[in-house]
Design a protein around this nucleic acid. Structure first.
Lengths: 235, 235, 235, 235
DNA sequence: AATGAATGAGACTTCATTCAT
DNA sequence: TATGAATGAAGTCTCATTCAT
């Protein structure tokens, strides 16, 4: 999962986008006398930063990553033109934070766990969720693909994207491996390889839908693709 | 197939990216006395334009589309900083031309026809070619994905990309349809839907390989994906 | 009288070029805690803007309006090349502001009220002042004529010029009308018409003097023209 | 009256804009054998040059002098973008030629001699003609004022304008002087001074009409101004 | 002779960034 | 802390001009 965005306030390496089990419990307590004030300040800052990243994400979703300017993000968030530069020391740092933010938002939606089924069917449910959630909130999906598409050549973004990809592949692999152990998936499937084309198909389809929703009947394609996975993996 | 790039010199609608059956044989001969001059001038221009687009493609492949500047493209092509702007009049127009150019280059490689097999196997050969050619010339593939990734929100690029996508889908559809007629592909497959996820997988995989070749064993994934297609479609 | 120049900072409609009775006294006071800051910032900006417009006026006076570049105006004012563009957003907007500024400067000089005489003689005094002040400060006069001469076809400038012309005509008209009422000016004079040729002569003479001072004995022509007005209007 | 425009072909100082009495009779005859061809060439060139200057004048009339580009003038004249630069070696030379051309066109209209009256009335007729012809062909008048307004700071143009001004003043002076001799004009009038404000008024009025025809009732102002001249000069 | 190709200089404009309040 | 002011670096675009055909 993506590590913390690097902002000036994050000096102590705050764990911003935690793992499922991530915890913020270990924050160092401030001197007693100023606790109230401090926490108010910190909260205000956190809130402003969040708003700015949200605004940036919207801009990126609408017009692409190279139309993003710090000033516009600040203004759209309801703050000054100067604030983003004040928080994120450089544009690159801001992009890195944005990468993490988008991943976070994306995952928050996609990982609303269906407690449900296990094994192959559970995996298919999970993959199906990627389609469903993407469709439910195209803004995040658009931003995600914009970021993903700009990742090559932008180290700041590449980092988040690579991390996300590897994490997701790992998750898929363990699902597949479990399916094999349960006898639902054929033994000669190579989890690491299957995971790649499954994730690729997922992204390719949603990307295409983002570009051209009218010619991409997402639900039908989703079902066809799930069927494909089943056929390709079943024992 | 992509239509002609629109540049100022293309007043008479030069047939730049011909169809398979396209022919340049019908160029209207100029008045005799000026043939030499005209053709020389035109060639000079054509050559320069091609060089500039090639240079632009390289830059895009290396550093992404928003690192592309007209000036650098001109210089890298061995001309002046001003020439690209002189040709294309605006950056948007230049991007449009670049989109067509990249598509053209991409197709030129991918469509080296395998006279070979027909039906489902022919289709798989064809899809396999996309992987193989992409691997053979990563520069074009990188450029292609850079352009594709920037298409949303850049109408100039979206046009070429949409055209390419629709053409390719159409091609895939007719392959699948033929397979159904031959009894090799199951009757309840919906060609228009299958075509989408197949193309999406193709692009998703190559995209991922472009971003992170070390963690993406292209050949193995290619084979797994072809196997997947077979399983998903076979009667 | 010319209305306020429109610059980005002028959000609240600052009263830049006040009427005779105009007052700046009503500026809304900022929240107490920030008065110092705000006013200092605002003053800094006001000062810079004024300096830039002054520099622009000088350039225009010396070399004409189409030799004016934003960069040079910024530098000559002692700031950076980029500042003018930063203020005015576009060259057109800068020209509009310049038009207002020049008119303002021009009027400030010409309207130093002679409390003096009334009626026809008062009018002649006033017209004479146009000549006298023009001669005293040729820089402003040159700039004024440069702007005036470029007004057709430059809407940004035309606006200020038209406004000034109409205002001045109106002033002349009321002078003439008063003279008629006092019985000093012949009854069949049509104030609106006389005002036009008087203003035209005024401008035509000073324009010619600006172009070619050596062949244009301003004082003598001034007196001849005043004599002409008297003869043309007297009862 | 304006001297020859300087173009590359005008090596022998061709008398382009002659005085009333100007004559072209002294052109050196070409070698007999090539007379026909030569003259055809020369005529073609003359025609093209004329067309280009006419096109340039139109552009200037419509959009002002700094919107004039050599390329557009060439194209609008029906030739290539490169031709103007080919004829007039530099833009400055082209402007000089344009200045002469505009003056020429202007005079051609204004000097259609009214054989008519002599003395003061003849002079007034002449001045009246300036108004009348200007109104009849606003295109030329607009171009004239555009050129006149840009003359300061553009030596190339200033030359033609100064020449025209001095010539016109001279003409006016001799009219006035004649009027004095005939006893129609008061003896203490100073012809050189009166000429200046009369010309100035003329130009000022037409300038204002060009800028804002709706608020400038030209005919009425013309008549008022002629009346003014009569009153100012009459014995 | 006339035209299209190509260049170089310069203007406008946009931003990230730094500075002062 | 947060904001407006100001700068410097780039990029696009336009032209006069030169070169080649």
């Amino acid at each position: 999962m993506p590590a913390a965005a690097v902002t000036k306030s994050a000096k102590a390496g705050r764990q911003k986008t935690g793992n499922v089990e991530g915890t913020r419990a270990t924050r160092v307590p401030a001197p007693a006398s100023r606790v109230a004030h401090r926490s108010t300040q910190a909260e205000r800052r956190e809130k402003a930063e969040h708003a700015i990243l949200g605004a940036a994400m919207e801009i990126v979703a609408e017009r692409g990553i190279d139309e993003l300017t710090l000033a516009e993000a600040g203004e759209r968030a309801g703050y000054s033109r100067a604030l983003p530069a004040h928080y994120f020391d450089s544009k690159d740092a801001a992009l890195a934070a944005l990468g993490d933010f988008v991943v976070e938002e994306y995952l928050r939606r996609v990982q609303r766990l269906v407690p449900g089924r296990e094994g192959l069917e559970g995996f298919l449910d999970r993959v199906g969720q990627y389609f469903d959630e993407g469709k439910k909130d195209p803004r995040v999906l658009r931003a995600f693909h914009a970021v993903l598409g700009s990742a090559p050549g932008k180290p700041a973004l590449a980092k988040s994207m690579t991390r996300l990809t590897e994490e997701t592949k790992k998750t898929f692999v363990s699902f597949i491996r479990a399916g094999v152990e349960r006898g639902e998936i054929r033994k000669n499937a190579v989890p690491e390889i299957e995971a790649i084309w499954i994730l690729a198909g997922l992204r390719g389809v949603t990307a295409q839908w983002v570009i051209s929703p009218d010619t991409t009947p997402l639900t039908k394609v989703r079902n066809a693709f799930l069927h494909t996975i089943r056929k390709a993996l079943e024992a």
